[in-house]
Design a binder for these strands. Structure first.
Lengths: 198, 198
DNA sequence: GTCTATAGGCAGATAGAC
DNA sequence: GTCTATCTGCCTATAGAC
């Protein structure tokens, strides 16, 4: 996913989000503080509260921006690729981008911390997953009716399976600090569904 | 996995581990405190330090006990089942037990928080994964040479894929608070490998 | 072994000057 | 918008009585 910090000349609220996003993806919501952001920006802690009233509001903004970006990436895949298998491969690539710098998917990390999140944040995490499952289920159903994919479960169940496998791939790859582990896991998840690459 | 708190008459160090284990599985290492344990045990915070000098030592003890238990469960599977597919199903059941009470695998949770853990803890998490991958790779290789499983990757890669899929299944099931989601994801991960149920 | 008391630090957050 | 100063609360951890 294109979460890249091309924020050289970005405004302050965006730069805060960029830095906070990386911190959450690496250390989790409960593993970073305003002091971490302030240090990295060479700004005072108190200044951050001007842009985001509290940590909960910052967290919400983080998920909101991330979900919008992800949704746009999914639309871009729909616009540029036809075949379902190719779309799934592109989907997996979205995540392999994330792995650089020992990150996880923002919402995968927050799913682990789910029980400790403020309610608005946990609701937003769930919506991110809903978005992913809905998109995947549609692509899988299309592939199945076109005959290029074979599903052994319902499209929604298969979609949950794919999402889970990819999120899990990022999770277990962390202790090994080896992107290859993610690639192997992802390839296997996709391979279980693909039938013909035409 | 049988992590059940049958610790009615257990001694204090074990009861501390039981409660801390549940807290980490639900809230993460950075999401609980000595105060949480003390409250649940109706004991003073300071008393906990007599049994575990610091949070890091408690965390190490947690992973150590969990890994030993898990290893014993794997040995029990080896002792009671012959066919590789049946062993894999029993392995998945180990995790579905964990899900009760909105928990994750202890080490799956710690893998997310990996970058924030004290070194001895992160090393132990990695050892837990190594143990799992080694066991799974052996079972998969046995199944492949017996002809009951078909592998499209090396045994180790397939093992990583299976581990990742199951850990991911626990992760994405959390926002839905629905064990069925885990079951669907797990079934799909296993289905991608099974060939003949004889 | 468990307690009370407390140290010392860092968290998130606010007030008010500039 | 950003700063300094400060508040309050919780955290991990220790000292020492019982």
């Amino acid at each position: 996913m294109n979460t890249t910090e091309l924020s050289a000349g970005a405004n302050t609220p965006e730069r805060i989000l960029d830095i906070a996003e990386g911190l959450v993806q690496r250390r989790g919501y409960n593993g970073f503080s305003y002091a971490d952001i302030a240090r990295e920006m060479s700004i005072a802690k108190a200044s951050l509260h001007y842009h985001y009233a509290g940590k909960a509001e910052l967290g919400e903004a983080l998920i909101e921006r991330y979900t919008v970006r992800f949704g746009e990436a999914l639309e871009a895949i729909d616009a540029s690729l036809e075949e379902a298998g190719a779309k799934l491969a592109a989907y997996a690539d979205l995540y392999s981008d994330v792995l650089r710098g020992d990150r996880m998917c923002l919402c995968g990390m927050l799913a682990a911390e789910y029980e400790t999140l403020p309610d608005p944040m946990s609701d937003s995490v769930r919506r991110f997953f809903d978005l992913n499952v809905a998109w995947l289920a549609r692509v899988l159903a299309d592939g199945a009716s076109a005959g290029t994919l074979s599903l052994e479960a319902s499209p929604v169940e298969a979609a949950q399976g794919l999402l889970g496998a990819l999120q899990g791939a990022m999770l277990v790859a962390r202790p090994y600090r080896d992107p290859q582990v993610f690639q192997a896991v992802a390839a296997q998840a996709l391979g279980g569904i693909a039938v013909a690459s035409t």
